[in-house]
Design a protein around this nucleic acid. Structure first.
Lengths: 126, 126
DNA sequence: CGAAATCCGATAAGATTAGTCGGAATTGGA
DNA sequence: TCCAATTCCGACTAATCTTATCGGATTTCG
């Protein structure tokens, strides 16, 4: 995604270009499939085709990317959507902790956009 | 650890008690080994033996526990200790993000103690 | 039509996490 | 002193998740 952001406006980037820095292209292709299905990248098939961001780099957050790749942050079964399958019927003491952490981390991820990454202005960057 | 905190001051708790709520005791034993080696619990061997917190529940944080179990938080090889094995020589654009997140999450974990968990007064609890 | 690409489902390989096994060592109490 | 309760330990197995590979089908430009 950083690569695509860096080449924003240059038209579709073929897989092979993106894979340059040492990752198997057939695997990358699979990963890009997730990003496409999540609506973060659009593709052009056929010759001269490739991948590009579906919207501006400052409208794509780390959370968008992570959720596209791995689904919603799930620190514990306890806290997930419906029917959290906690063996203790859903009221174990740890649950509040997981819920809190999930919220906070999602908040952090919401606060990071692709543009931030490019400009290296992540809040608190070291 | 929550169980042990709940039984603070009641002397060593044998494995079997702790395992009550549906987790295989031989596995739990293994996990408690990590906590012991990390200095979070002390043990008494032999009859009437068992496990107990090595210090007060408000001096044990979520971070202590997680690091005891899984080692230091490692969101990406990029950011770890020495010789981060980033294929891009250690200066990829994503690195700042990982470093930032690692710091922030460690901060969150530092802010949660076992006492907090018992009292359910996690900041921002839902 | 042919080459450059993405798309797709299935499968394999590797790594991590979860769990099992068998027994050794320690300790309190009868 | 012996027995039962209990932790300790290393090795192994099983399950799950991540990473990667394979073989082709489809689309599109020139």
């Amino acid at each position: 995604m950083i690569y695509l952001a860096q080449h924003e406006g240059e038209g579709p980037q073929p897989l092979k270009n993106i894979a340059e820095l040492g990752m198997p292209d057939q695997y990358l292709e699979q990963l890009l499939g997730n990003l496409r299905r999540a609506g973060l990248v659009t593709t052009v098939r056929g010759a001269q085709g490739g991948y590009q961001l579906s919207r501006s780099a400052d409208e794509i957050t780390a959370r968008h990317i992570i959720e596209a790749m791995e689904g919603p942050l799930n620190l514990s079964e306890c806290v997930g959507e419906a029917g959290h399958t906690c063996p203790r019927g859903g009221q174990c003491t740890a649950r509040g902790v997981w819920a809190y952490l999930t919220d906070e981390i999602n908040g952090l991820l919401d606060g990071i956009t692709l543009s931030n990454m490019l400009k290296n202005d992540i809040k608190g960057d070291m």
